[in-house]
């Protein structure tokens, strides 16, 4: 019997096989799924913004790509996973509205995705699947059983990575 756990916005969770993680309706946010196949431990983070270094930002570390991913790796290690064994699958980072020019949120999806890629590269965690960009929302399921990621969209059906 597997249980399903919801990861909210600016949130992260870690589970063991055969449990499932889900985050609903990612827009410009990015969902990061990390998996250690040896220990069968999966973790998911749902970040909103690229960097905690940008001025004037408040809130906890879960909100940002840099601090959020670091916290996710730490929490997975505390659960028994090993970071050299981890690989990543990422999704989200869409541009929901075509013509936003406001400085805070212009291209925010794209900026989130590149921040996530940079952080993962620094931590030497390979990205094995990526479903990012475009202009539609994604619900993300991540199965700690085998590390597969399922994406569900509103008008394009669902598929597996």
């Amino acid at each position: 019997m597997s249980n399903s756990f919801t990861v909210g916005i600016s949130d992260l969770k870690v589970v063991r096989a055969p449990d499932v993680l889900v985050t609903y309706a990612l827009g410009s946010c990015v969902g990061i799924c990390l998996y250690d196949p040896m220990n069968r431990i999966g973790g998911m983070a749902h970040i909103m913004l690229p960097s905690s270094q940008e001025t004037g930002m408040k809130g906890d570390g879960y909100k940002f790509a840099d601090t959020g991913i670091a916290l996710l790796v730490k929490k997975m290690e505390q659960t028994g996973a090993r970071s050299p064994l981890m690989s990543a699958k990422i999704a989200g980072g869409a541009q929901m509205f075509a013509s936003i020019t406001n400085s805070t949120i212009a291209n925010i999806g794209q900026r989130n995705v590149s921040a996530v890629k940079n952080i993962l590269a620094q931590m030497k965690i390979p990205i094995v699947a990526e479903d990012t960009g475009s202009n539609y929302g994604r619900t993300l399921y991540f199965y700690a059983e085998d590390g597969r990621m399922k994406i569900k969209s509103a008008q394009r059906g669902e598929w597996i990575w």
Binding site: L26, S28, M96, F97, T104, G137
Partner: peptide
Amino acid sequence: DMAGAILSVPAI
């Protein structure tokens, strides 16, 4: 689209 995805924009 899905409400959550749309709301991510003002949320950010």
